[in-house]
Measured scan of single mutants.
Amino acid sequence: KVILLEDVKGLGKKGDVVEVKDGYARNFLIPQGLAVEATKGNLKEL
């Protein structure tokens, strides 16, 4: 699961917690600054 930092077409809006494949999160969303891993600490910051 990841928390979206920006609106991502076809996935969700900023602040949404979405389930995506590990590779998509690690190789695209997180490096592009579009999402962060949905850890307990990150979820509390919402």
Rank of each mutant, 00 (worst) to 15 (best):
L4I: 01
E45R: 02
K9F: 09
I30D: 01
V8D: 00
V17C: 06
G15N: 09
I3Y: 10
I30K: 03
N27D: 13
I30R: 01
E37S: 05
F28W: 10
K40R: 05
V17K: 08
E45L: 07
R26D: 14
E6S: 15
V36M: 08
K14P: 04
G15E: 02
K14C: 06
T39F: 03
L43G: 07
L5F: 03
G12H: 00
V8W: 04
D22Y: 12
V8Q: 04
V17I: 08
G15D: 06
A25F: 12
E19G: 05
I3L: 14
D22Q: 10
D7S: 09
G15P: 00
A35L: 01
G33K: 09
K21G: 11
G41H: 14
F28L: 06
T39I: 04
I30T: 02
G41I: 06
V17T: 09
R26L: 13
E6P: 00
G12C: 01
K14F: 06
P31D: 15
L4Y: 00
G33E: 06
K21E: 15
V17W: 06
D7M: 07
G15L: 05
Y24N: 03
L46Y: 15
Q32H: 10
V20D: 06
G12F: 01
A25V: 08
K44S: 14
E45G: 07
V17F: 05
K13H: 12
F28A: 04
E37C: 09
Q32K: 10
D7C: 08
L46G: 07
G41M: 06
Y24Q: 05
L43Y: 09
K21R: 14
G10Q: 07
V18D: 00
K40T: 15
K14I: 09
E19V: 11
K21N: 13
N27P: 02
N42R: 01
I30V: 08
V17D: 02
V8C: 06
L34V: 09
I30C: 03
G41E: 15
N27T: 10
V8G: 01
G10R: 06
L29F: 02
V18K: 06
V17S: 06
G23Q: 13
E6Q: 11
K44Y: 10
E37V: 10
A38W: 08
G33Y: 06
A38V: 04
T39M: 04
P31V: 15
L11G: 00
V36E: 08
G33I: 03
L43T: 04
V8L: 09
D7Y: 12
T39N: 11
Y24E: 08
V36L: 11
G41R: 07
K9A: 14
L34N: 02
A38H: 10
V20Q: 01
L4E: 00
V20E: 02
G10H: 08
R26E: 14
A25C: 04
L34A: 04
Q32S: 12
V18G: 00
K21M: 11
E6F: 13
E37M: 07
A38F: 08
K9E: 15
K1V: 12
K40D: 15
Q32D: 06
I3R: 07
A38T: 07
L4W: 00
L34W: 08
E45K: 03
L46H: 14
G33T: 03
R26H: 15
K14N: 04
G10A: 07
L29T: 01
G33H: 10
T39A: 05
P31Q: 14
D16K: 06
Y24M: 06
G10W: 11
T39Y: 09
K40W: 15
A35M: 01
K14V: 08
R26W: 13
L5N: 03
V36P: 00
L11H: 03
L29M: 04
G33C: 05
I30S: 02
R26S: 15
L46N: 10
D16L: 05
K13A: 13
N42G: 05
D16T: 15
A35S: 02
K21Y: 11
V8F: 08
K14G: 04
T39K: 08
L43N: 07
